[in-house]
Each structure stands twice: as structure tokens, then as C-alpha cells.
Design a protein around this nucleic acid. Structure first.
Lengths: 119, 119
DNA sequence: CCCAGATATCGACATCTGTCAATATAGATT
DNA sequence: AATCTATATTGACAGATGTCGATATCTGGG
């Protein structure tokens, strides 16, 4: 491990880790990965991510996402922020609208970490 | 979908779902999958799972696990229970000792769901 | 049968989390 | 500028969660 884990974001940590099943996670790595998993550990955020990811071009407007749920607009905004902060979604503003896009590597790396495919 | 989701456990739900990125999760599926992800969304449980999984034969005694953490025995017991209840770990008692083993399919399926590998 | 050790359960507590209503901000249109 | 619409932020609150100490349960050995 050439770089100290301290400098890495959750996504970067996941990208460089062996699968869960191959060798024990260090306490540091676990502390760093948990927030990423936690961001996924909510039914609304799972659906949000899935909606964005499966949308045309892996990109969706907040206005569309709001309509897909029976939740207040601030609540959806909050969940999107959580997903954005851990690096699972990117934001881009175009005019009045905000578009969120998935970061496929982040999902792929996390899937590999959990699923045991070589990472 | 031939069987109602209502009859499926979290692990079974994950096993039958398309990857997050392929098509939008239904609200039902998301509600069912979230507990499984939530069980992983804690640094202690990530390490526990990783310790068990990477142990000899994918099996570890609680006594060994307790020693790996600076936490009380009831706390470790609680975390193991969480992992067991969602189906990520199996329990087996041999004499006074309790051994936990990973369910590799559960991890593999969850990894595929998140990572986008065909499920 | 009683004790000692391993693990689980209980009850309590502080902290974190999801949600909403109210409000703020920012961009487009008139 | 005034206003409308889209999104974010704030503050509040109920409920969930991680942790511990105390205690219960189970099992093997004396």
C-alpha cells in the first residue's frame, strides 16, 4: 500500500481493497468503507441510485426523481446529497435544473469488494 | 417474476434482482434489500464479516472475534446477531463455542446487485 | 449438583437518521 | 426589478442504532 489510507476518499479506499472474503479488513479501511455502504443502506437511496443509473445516459433530473416518490422535496434533496457526498452520484446544474449521474466505477468497485470479484 | 416478493427473504430478493444499474428497483424490492445492505453498513460488522470470511474454512469462533475488537462481548454478540438475522452469517454451536460461517452466495449476489454484474 | 467459562439477552443511554414544514437561494421570464 | 419555478438548507422531532453493564442461559468438568 503505497499511499496512506488517510488520504483516500471512501470510493478510492474501496477501489484499492481486496474483497471482503479474501483478507481481513483493517479497522481503518472499515471505517472508511462503511460510510459508502451506509449511503446505500436506505430503500429510498437504493431506488434513487437505481433510477438515476437506469435512466437515459445514467443521468436524471431531480424533478423526475421527486415525482417517483411519495416524499417531500427536501427529503429527496437530502438523500441525493448523501449519495453525492460519498461519491456515488455526480451533480451538474444546467439552467434551473440539477442532473445527477452515477459514477459507475464507484458501484463496480463496491460490488467487487462485497461480491469477492478480484479488485 | 413468478413468485411474489412478499415470500422472499432479503437474500432471496437480492439473488433474483437485476443489477441496480440495469433497471429501476421497485419500492418493494428496495425495502427488502435495504436491511441486507444496512447490516453491512457498519465498520465493526464489515470487519466481522471479513474476519469470518477470510478465516480458515470461512468459519470463526466468537471467542476469536471478540479478541479482535476493543468492544464489549455483548456488543460483538449484537453485531453477529445482525449479520446472522439477515442471512449473511450462519451459526453453529459446537460444545461451548459458537462458530459463525459466511454464506458466500449472499455476498456474491449482493455484490452482483451493486456492482452491475449480471444477476 | 454446583461451578466456571462462553455466549446471548435485557435495559438504559447517547447519538445518529429520516422526515417534514418553513425558508433560503438561484436562474429564467416577463 | 418582480416574480415564478427548481433545488437546497435549516430546525425540529420521532424513531432507530451502537454501546455498555448487569444478568441470564447453556455446556462441560469436578
Amino acid at each position: 500500500m503505497s499511499k496512506s489510507l488517510i488520504e483516500l476518499t471512501p470510493v478510492q479506499t474501496v477501489a484499492c481493497c481486496s474483497p471482503l472474503m479474501k483478507e481481513p479488513l483493517t479497522a481503518d479501511a472499515a471505517e472508511r468503507i462503511a460510510p459508502l455502504v451506509k449511503a446505500l443502506a436506505d430503500p429510498v437511496r437504493l431506488r434513487l441510485l437505481s433510477l438515476v443509473a437506469s435512466h437515459e445516459g445514467g443521468e436524471a433530473c431531480v424533478c423526475d426523481l421527486n415525482d417517483a416518490f411519495d416524499l417531500s422535496q427536501p427529503t429527496i434533496s437530502h438523500h441525493l446529497k448523501v449519495l453525492h457526498e460519498v461519491g456515488l452520484l455526480d451533480r451538474s446544474k444546467r439552467g434551473v435544473w440539477v442532473y445527477y449521474t452515477v459514477r459507475p466505477e464507484a458501484l463496480t468497485d463496491l460490488g467487487a469488494l462485497i461480491g469477492g470479484v478480484a479488485g
